[in-house]
């Protein structure tokens, strides 16, 4: 557990000293979400309908934007090879890195969402469900994305490839995440969608770090 703490402290400290990386992702999300109301026009009904989809697609793309950096810097400066030969299970260290990635690229998006949701005339209930769905869904994006980032590590043009690998895996998260808000708005209740997102989160929490660790070992062979 000491190793997990060390890696969290390390990655968060580095991010605090290089804020541009974190802010780029956040501003990308804010700009994409804010462009839609300007482009589509002030029709409250239309905006309410498209809001969950737009927010989720923007969150998905923002999460992908930061995937390239997840392992690349550690790969280039040699810290990743030190992790590979650390006496701790690599999966544990990878989990630390993914949690740090979510804290830096997922949590800020979730926090800004209620504010952005106002542009779309979302009701308080719908906003609450949207935040809950993002809170459950964005860590899944980080966990699944890590597998793709590890598989494309060190490849030329890895950035484009990681999108092709990871986007199909993101589809269920998008469907159930956006669906949760639609279900609330239409009065069906979002419990089923949120429960499915929660199940997805648990599954990826358990499986993704080990898959990522295996992919990293392959990258070094």
């Amino acid at each position: 557990m000491g190793a997990l703490r060390s890696i969290l402290v390390r990655d968060l400290t580095i991010a605090m000293r290089r804020k541009a990386d974190v802010l780029t992702v956040l501003f990308f999300f804010i700009i994409v979400v804010s462009l839609f109301p300007l482009g589509i026009g002030p029709e409250a009904d239309t905006l309410r309908t498209i809001a969950p989809g737009v927010m989720w697609v923007a969150a998905l793309l923002a999460s992908m934007l930061s995937l390239g950096r997840l392992f690349y810097n550690d790969y280039m400066d040699g810290t990743l090879e030190q992790m590979l030969i650390a006496p701790q299970p690599l999966g544990l260290l990878v989990m630390g890195k993914i949690i740090a990635h979510w804290l830096l690229s997922g949590v800020p998006l979730v926090l800004i969402t209620p504010l952005l949701g106002l542009q779309y005339d979302l009701s308080a209930d719908a906003l609450l469900v949207l935040v809950a769905a993002l809170l459950l869904g964005t860590p899944i994006l980080s966990f699944l994305g890590a597998i793709g980032a590890a598989l494309t590590l060190g490849l030329r043009g890895g950035g484009a490839l990681v999108s092709l690998l990871v986007l199909p895996l993101y589809i269920p998260v998008l469907v159930f995440g956006a669906g949760a808000v639609d279900a609330t708005v239409s009065g069906l209740g979002a419990e089923a969608h949120l429960a499915l997102l929660g199940a997805g989160l648990l599954l990826s929490l358990v499986l993704a770090p080990w898959a990522t660790a295996a992919a990293l070992r392959i990258a070094f062979e």
């Binding site: 400290t13 400066d77 040699g78 090879e81």
Partner: peptide, 28 residues
């Protein structure tokens, strides 16, 4: 085992002290 390779395994943003403490922390 300790391995010292061609790459220093140091983080540019961290201080010398933090690098050593956290680097050792990663290895338990």
């Amino acid at each position: 085992v300790s391995y010292f390779g061609h790459l220093n395994a140091l983080k540019d943003e961290l201080t010398g002290l933090e690098n050593v403490v956290l680097g050792l922390g990663l290895a338990g």
